[in-house]
Amino acid sequence: MPYLSPAEIRSKTFRRKRQGYDPGQVNEFLLIIADALAGRLRLNPDHVRTVRFATVQNGYDPLSVDGVLHLLEFQVRNGIVPPTGLNTGADLYARKLPKTGTGYDRAEVDAFIARAAANLDGRGAMTSTEVRNTRFSTTSGLLGRGYQVQAVDTLLDDLEQELRFRGR
């Protein structure tokens, strides 16, 4: 099984079983692991190995969750985060963002991406903290089209991770 990026961990889903792990608890813990791998917080890998979840009806399949947690414990223990693929500004521009009736304001996102692309190409001083704290206005269906929120957030996660790897 390939290693998971923080963005993939945040969007991970599992099959459901008649009796399984509480999805809310699992999802919350996965967010913590994603933040740890992204360098936002420290997490003891033994905590990943020993975590327990409540069992509920129509919960996540325990075998699937345990398998992913086993891999994530190894990643946390060894600090393994797969590459983001954002080596240059061209790589950033190649990530096409889906448009939607409501979402993040396209002009704001496009301006930010232009700055980030220049930064990846060595022309700027953007930091991972700046990326993490970036906020965009949202649009309504009546005023114009926006970019899909989840797609932009995933791109920001990857950009933040890349800048952390570069020591910024």
Rank of each mutant, 00 (worst) to 15 (best):
R135G: 04
G124Y: 12
A111E: 13
D110Y: 05
A125L: 12
T129F: 12
A118M: 11
G124L: 01
D121R: 04
T127F: 05
R135W: 03
R132K: 14
T127R: 07
M126R: 09
I113R: 15
I113A: 04
T127P: 03
M126D: 00
G124H: 06
A118C: 07
R135D: 10
A116L: 08
L120T: 08
R106T: 15
E130S: 06
D105I: 01
A107C: 08
F136G: 02
T127K: 05
G124K: 04
V109F: 02
A125V: 12
A117H: 00
R135C: 05
A118T: 08
D105P: 01
N119G: 11
T129G: 14
Y104V: 05
D110K: 04
E108M: 02
G124P: 09
V131F: 02
G124F: 08
R106C: 10
A114I: 10
R135Q: 13
T134L: 11
A125S: 14
V131T: 11
A111W: 07
R123C: 12
V131E: 05
A111T: 13
A107M: 10
E108F: 03
V109P: 04
A117F: 05
A114P: 07
N133V: 10
T127C: 03
A107R: 15
A114R: 15
R123N: 15
L120Y: 10
A118R: 15
A107V: 15
N133T: 13
F112W: 13
D121G: 00
A111K: 08
V131W: 05
F112P: 09
A118N: 12
G122Y: 08
G124M: 03
I113V: 13
A118I: 07
D105S: 08
E130K: 09
R115A: 10
D105W: 06
G124D: 03
N119W: 13
M126E: 02
A118V: 00
T129N: 14
A125Y: 11
A118P: 08
A116I: 08
N119I: 06
T127G: 01
A107N: 13
F112R: 01
D121A: 06
D121Y: 05
A114H: 14
D105F: 00
T129L: 15
A116H: 02
A107Y: 14
S128C: 09
F136V: 09
R135M: 03
M126K: 07
F112Q: 01
R106M: 13
R132P: 00
G124E: 01
L120F: 07
A117R: 06
F112Y: 07
T129C: 09
D121N: 09
F112V: 05
Y104Q: 06
N133G: 10
R132E: 12
T129V: 14
V131K: 01
A114F: 11
M126A: 07
Y104K: 03
F112C: 03
E130F: 08
V109D: 00
R135K: 11
T134N: 02
G124A: 02
T127I: 09
V131C: 10
D105E: 11
A125G: 14
E108S: 08
A111I: 03
Y104M: 09
I113G: 02
A114L: 13
N119A: 15
R135H: 11
T134A: 14
T134Q: 12
R106W: 07
G122F: 06
F136Y: 10
R135I: 10
T134E: 13
A111L: 01
S128T: 10
